[in-house]
Write a protein that binds this DNA or RNA. Structure first.
Lengths: 128, 128
DNA sequence: GTATATGCAAAATGTTTGCGTTATG
DNA sequence: CATAACGCAAACATTTTGCATATAC
């Protein structure tokens, strides 16, 4: 049974009020000045909230896990393989696909990870 | 300038002849009995081949990096959040999406990561 | 002959865990 | 008062790095 604790609420609050996925460390740093908290606590809560499908976790190439709300509206990124800049695709374009995949696999989908890599316009022009 | 070495070729060969993404350790284990090689060498080559867009790297929830050929034909997985079983979606359904995203972002897309989570049919029936 | 690749051992990093204590329902 | 959450320190696992040597072009 999941209990209602101040620190858990703080973690959720930070994530809800930030419009991009955050790492455990970033969440810790945001909370710590106000409320004393331990990194392990952050990790344990993030893990739990993912299991409950409240949060969505993606592991990026920097080997860090990024957490965001698992809401209907969420974002994906396109990352440049040259300069590592990124831009956000604001509407997740996968809803239709997911319906088809649910039918073909029988899985009841709860979340997904989708991330694109490519070469950004600036790096494309530099190449010429 | 990238040189043509026996060990690099071995690594590529293993990946090409395996129809699922592999970890550095798995590649090492596949090569070692035949050819002496060091894990660092495997990692360094995998990194290089990803930069060249020859390989595609995805980091999964077990915190390991999995490598596969970055070919037109590649696969994605649906993973069960309860029992962790998975199934493969054999055709990548994102081609049309990518064209649209290239137009809207200006990025020249080279690869992507796409992974779905949900509840598998077996676990769905257990829940009732 | 010079730049790249390799092996080895050690370090780095993000994350997890054991355990004693504290707080919640 | 039983179960869940927390803090702390130590452990873990994968990946990276420094440096000396070997290999490719």
């Amino acid at each position: 049974m999941i209990k209602n604790t101040k620190k858990r609420n703080e973690i959720l609050m930070i994530i809800q009020n930030t419009n991009k996925p955050l790492t455990a460390q970033e969440i810790y740093d945001a909370i710590f000045p106000t409320t004393s908290i331990n990194l392990s606590t952050v990790y344990r809560n993030l893990e739990l909230l993912c299991q409950e499908n409240i949060l969505l976790k993606e592991i990026r190439n920097d080997k860090k896990s990024y957490y965001q709300m698992n809401s209907y509206i969420h974002k994906h990124r396109v990352i440049c393989t040259k300069c590592h800049c990124d831009i956000i695709i604001s509407d997740c374009p996968l809803k239709k696909l997911e319906n088809a995949i649910e039918k073909s696999t029988g899985y009841q989908l709860t979340s997904h990870i989708f991330e694109l890599s490519g070469i950004c316009p600036q790096c494309q022009s530099k190449e010429k």
